[in-house]
Computed example of a mutant assay.
Amino acid sequence: MTGTPLLEVKDLQKVFTVGSMMNKKNVQAIRNISFTIYEGETLGLVGESGCGKSTTGRAAIRLIEPTSGTVKFMGQDITKVKEQQLRKIRRDMQMIFQDPYASLNPRMTIEKILMEPYKLQNLYSSQEREERVISLMQEVGLRPEYRRRYPHEFSGGQRQRIGIARALALNPKLIIADEPVSALDVSVQAQVLNLMMDLQDKYKLSYLFISHDLSVVKYICHRIGVMYLGEIVEMGGRDDLYNNPLHPYTQSLLSSIPTVDQDVRLERIILSGDVPSPAAPPSGCSFHPRCPSCMEICKTVKPETIQVGQQVVACHLYP
């Protein structure tokens, strides 16, 4: 996809220190992550649990501090700005969290939750804030008369709509959606996804959509990056990646998608072994202990990321 770059991430890394005082270890949660999100685009990040998807999203908007790398938002490197300046920039960057109940303060009414962004940014009068809360609730399909209720009085789908309303409050340009529908029933998932797509068209939003559900990602995303053990191993357009997966890991993920269509059913690729620990990653290609196409070079030499057609892939199968 081409257009105006909104978010440019280059060589992003995050290292966590774990363990006791006497036995500390550095765990590299993400390494050398690079991608660009364009205006009006949805970029998906997929992979198994623990591969670093959520860490990537949070580090990209500095909810956690990246260890190294650069993140440019609208051309400005936000990794170097101070907290006070970052607060202003965050008006244009918001996040939808995975668990809508845990991300909403149970002691605050929905009205107070949705007013909080305006108070933090010192925007509007009390009456204007109330009017905007009513407008936000209508925007996401909630009845304004429910605004004085508490989060526990809503269903899971309604709570996620409240989370979306809060993310929209400051009219952002970019929203990081971290597993926004994984806790919802399938029928409610469709409603929330359609809502997000309608809002994208209406407000020209860009999304970084993080999910482990390949069917959901195919439905909403324009481009998709596949992550394994803290790295992006393949990235491409939605149709290119689903019709012609290059990396063996991508092929195994796509083969696991359930389908009732016998004509398009892929042969199931079952991976051996478990995902290695990020505290002790394998040498060479991090996927080689589980790869059905492993070669000797894969065990010792880390593959470079190269362009193959319209996709990029890090694999020794494509010299």
Rank of each mutant, 00 (worst) to 15 (best):
E39G: 01
E39Q: 14
G40A: 09
G40R: 09
E41F: 11
E41W: 12
T42E: 03
T42W: 12
V46L: 06
G47M: 13
G47V: 10
E48R: 01
E48N: 01
S49M: 14
G50T: 13
G50Y: 07
G50K: 10
G52S: 11
G52R: 09
G52C: 06
S54N: 06
S54W: 03
T56Y: 12
G57Q: 03
A59W: 09
A59L: 13
A59C: 15
I61L: 15
I61R: 05
I61W: 07
R62V: 11
R62L: 15
L63T: 07
I64K: 03
I64V: 15
E65R: 07
S68Y: 04
S68P: 03
G69R: 05
G69V: 10
T70Y: 11
T70N: 05
F73M: 09
F73H: 12
F73S: 04
F73G: 03
F73T: 04
F73A: 04
M74T: 09
M74L: 14
G75V: 07
G75Q: 10
G75T: 05
D77R: 02
D77Q: 02
I78W: 13
I78S: 07
T79F: 07
V81A: 02
V81G: 00
V81L: 14
K82T: 08
K82M: 06
K82D: 15
K82Y: 05
K82N: 14
K82Q: 14
E83I: 09
Q84D: 14
Q85V: 12
L86E: 02
L86Q: 09
L86M: 15
R87M: 08
K88E: 15
K88Q: 14
R90N: 03
D92E: 15
D92F: 06
M93S: 05
M93C: 05
Q94V: 08
Q94N: 11
M95S: 04
I96A: 10
F97M: 13
Q98A: 08
Q98R: 13
D99E: 14
D99C: 08
P100V: 12
Y101A: 12
A102G: 14
S103Q: 05
P106L: 11
R107K: 14
M108S: 11
M108N: 08
T109F: 05
I110G: 03
I110R: 06
I110Q: 03
E111Y: 01
E111L: 05
L114A: 06
M115T: 02
E116F: 07
E116C: 06
Y118T: 01
K119P: 00
K119F: 13
K119E: 13
K119V: 13
L120D: 04
L120Q: 07
L120S: 12
Q121F: 13
Q121W: 02
Q121G: 00
L123N: 00
Y124A: 10
S125Q: 04
S126F: 03
Q127G: 00
Q127A: 11
E128F: 01
E128V: 01
R129L: 04
R129M: 14
E130V: 00
E130N: 00
E131A: 02
R132A: 00
R132T: 00
R132P: 00
V133N: 00
V133Y: 01
V133G: 01
I134W: 00
I134Y: 00
